[in-house]
């Protein structure tokens, strides 16, 4: 197990180096950011040349990359061109809000997905199932920015129940979390349903029922536990999608997280911030996937990792 973890961590390093290279190159394909920076002032040729030099953007690419990589190892992504602030500090200032939203979205997703998925499976082919599947399909189909705007219109503008946007404590978290969670719920509910259907027809469940166990006990402690494995995998896999959704929803809900930070940085061609945020999020994503993989071994003893006995 320890060997497996070490191996995976080594993979992580290689993946991160790859990602850093891709981010570094793609952002630079957009050209010198200095002209864009000075557009509100006096972008004479000399001014552009001077600032380019001051920011170290006239150095050979390989040197720039080395500086970036060397810093990244110690979590120092340099300072923002737009603000002069350390990138890591900017990420940390925003990370909390993004984490709140991610957790909120996951909780809403789980709370909705399990009852819907289980009910759909148990009462398969009935009206309940129809509702469940429709819910799941709608959750997957609605673009989240549209859903977010609609929720604002209904719950904030018409009903005046919740704040429109911003981060004013728990009430502000409700709309963006629900928007984010609905999509996750749609995906998970379908998965819970199909996993449950697989398990429900298994012979050991017939045995359990034959022993006279209460149907509730059969469903929850025998069937659901076995249906969990693919669901956990899916949560891990969906984390990337979740981050993507967060970036967009932060914009809609004026949520002060990392998504707004990176959109603004791309807009201003603030290389260090874009590089820092992307690498940071990539690391987070890899970490979540690693944890997901490792969790199989605990949830399902049949899984033997790394060929160990």
């Amino acid at each position: 197990m320890a060997r497996y973890i070490i191996k995976r961590l080594l993979h992580t390093v290689i993946v991160l180096i790859g990602i850093s290279l891709i981010v570094f190159i793609t952002i630079r394909l957009t050209g010198n950011p200095v002209a864009a920076m000075l557009q509100n002032g006096t972008p004479s040729k000399q001014a552009i040349a001077q600032l380019t030099a001051a920011l170290g953007l006239n150095k050979p690419l390989i040197v720039q990359y080395w500086i970036f990589l060397r810093g990244a190892v110690t979590l120092n992504f340099g300072t923002s061109y737009a603000t002069g602030q350390p990138v890591m500090q900017m990420i940390m200032q925003r990370m909390g809000a993004t984490a709140e939203l991610a957790v909120g979205g996951i909780i809403v997703g789980l709370v909705l997905a399990f009852p819907v998925g289980i009910a759909s499976a148990i009462w398969r082919g009935t009206v309940v199932d129809l509702f469940g599947r429709t819910f799941a399909l709608l959750g997957i189909s609605f673009p989240n920015y549209w859903l977010g705007t609609m929720f604002i219109l209904i719950f904030s503008v018409w009903l005046h129940l919740l704040p429109v946007a911003g981060d004013n404590g728990f009430v502000s978290l409700v709309l963006p979390s629900v928007t984010l969670g609905l999509i996750l719920a749609g995906i998970l509910a379908r998965l819970v349903r199909s996993s449950m259907l697989d398990v429900l027809s298994a012979q050991y469940l017939t045995t359990a029922r034959a022993k006279g166990l209460h149907w509730w006990r059969v469903t929850i402690s025998h069937a659901l536990r076995n249906a969990l494995l693919p669901t956990i995998t899916m949560i891990g896999l969906q984390f990337g999608g979740l981050l993507g959704g967060i970036v967009i929803l932060e914009q809609v809900f004026a949520w002060p997280g990392i998504g707004q930070l990176v959109i603004k940085a791309i807009d201003q061609r603030d290389y260090p911030v874009v590089q820092g945020v992307v690498l940071f999020l990539a690391f987070l994503l890899i970490l979540v996937n690693l944890v997901t993989d490792l969790s199989y071994a605990f949830v399902d003893p049949r899984v033997r990792i790394g060929g160990e006995k």
Binding site: Q93, M95, G96, A99, A102, V103, P256, G257, V288
Partner: peptide, 13 residues
């Protein structure tokens, strides 16, 4: 995903 939550709530959200 919640690593920064406790730390940043004072400054951030």
């Amino acid at each position: 995903c919640g690593g920064g939550a406790s730390g940043s709530s004072s400054s951030g959200g």
